[in-house]
Amino acid sequence: MPKSKNEISKVLKTLSRRKNIYVEYEGEEVITWCHGCGNYNIQNALKRALTLEGFKYRDVLHAYDIGCNGNGSDKIGGYTVHGLHGRSISLGAGAALGNSGLKIIASGGDGGTMSEGINHLVHAVRSDYPMLFILHNNHNYGLTTGQASATTPKGFAMNGSPDGVVVKPMNPSEFVLGLNPTFVARSFSGDIKHMTKILRAALKHKGFAFVEMLQVCPTYNKATPQEWYRDRIKYIENLKKYDPVDPDAAKKIVQDFEKEIYLGIFYQKKNQAPFQKRLPNREGIKTSPHEEVKNFNISKFLKAFE
């Protein structure tokens, strides 16, 4: 991962200065992920990124999906909701619109996101809800013991598909890039520093930030272990000419998932008004909807029925 010594030490200094904020994110429950699971690092990177971006635990609501990643819902310090399989994006979106003062971070697995609830992903990108979404892509249904997901590589034998998966896998970042998004990035659970950096950028994004985490699952995903990734991973940051404002370039570089797997911010469109700012009827309203819950005088509407 390309990063100057200077940059790293700066980050570490900030982290140690803000350790009081950081430790609040430590949960008290016993963690139940398998040894070597990528979820540990993803959650730790998230805690770091939040701390570095100045979010305290009370500023955030985490919306978790059902799956191994969702089992982290009570392992982090902070307000969380552990909803239904495939629905964390929609629940998070409703929370984001209801209380514009909270940072909403939704997460989900490749099963929940690319199959059960793929419609939510499509329309959340299209609606550009103000939230961060983290896809934990471990190429299988972990919690239900290793069935194939929409991202499992073709030919791999999985629980329930002993002869190997016969259909082509989806490439989530490539899929999202086709939806006219405002933020698409990819990182890897084996690189906590890179994940932290990507998540920091995503936390700053005003609209719907889609971050795909390539997550190792040593228990059920023997096909793409740590080493497999190590041999293939490339960093966009190392490309001199790459500018994440060109959707065509992004679509090209995101495609390869066999030889060169690129990590980094593929595409970002800044300065686009997020969803709630596009509603003409709420123009000029400074409050968040959750602060507006009081009796609304409807008498004037009754005139039409007199």
Binding site: V81, A93, L97, G98, H290, E292
Partner: peptide, 19 residues
């Protein structure tokens, strides 16, 4: 919303945060 499941989920998300 894109479907009824979404509408319900968004409503619940909003209610959870007090709207």
């Amino acid at each position: 919303a894109e479907d009824e499941i979404t509408a319900a989920q968004m409503m619940i998300g909003s209610m959870l945060v007090g709207c």
